[in-house]
């Protein structure tokens, strides 16, 4: 297991919802939890992954994610069962879409 922590400069606005969870921790899959947190407009990320040695790839993917979705004050938490970068990006995008939605 690798435990990784990152911080990113935030962009844009705080999310509408308190949190969003997508995905399931399984082989080749992951769960992404986004939470609204008071982070002075920035974002933080914690990744627990079963595959070691991909620190810089995670950092790039997450920095791009924060940038693309213009996130601010969001805590990103990932439990990864060894997902491919494509699956990671898909789940992150799903979570971002969900936390932006109006509270139902």
């Amino acid at each position: 297991m690798d435990h990784l922590e990152f911080e990113f400069e935030g962009r844009g606005h705080s999310p509408r919802r308190g949190h969003a969870l997508v995905g399931v921790v399984g082989s080749g899959n992951l769960e992404v939890l986004l939470e609204h947190a008071e982070l002075g407009g920035n974002c933080s990320a914690v990744v627990d992954t079963s595959i070691r040695g991909f620190d810089s790839l995670w950092e790039r993917v997450l920095a791009d994610f924060v940038d693309r979705h213009r996130l601010a004050d969001v805590r990103i938490s990932v439990n990864d069962g060894g997902a491919t970068p494509a699956v990671v990006t898909l789940r992150l995008d799903q979570a971002a879409a969900e936390i932006r939605e109006e509270q139902s």
Binding site: M1, L21, V24, V25, E31, L33, D48, T49, S50, S77, N79, D80, G81
Partner: peptide, 10 residues
Amino acid sequence: PALGLPVSFD
């Protein structure tokens, strides 16, 4: 975690 296995938040 002691077994090197990923957890799930729930």
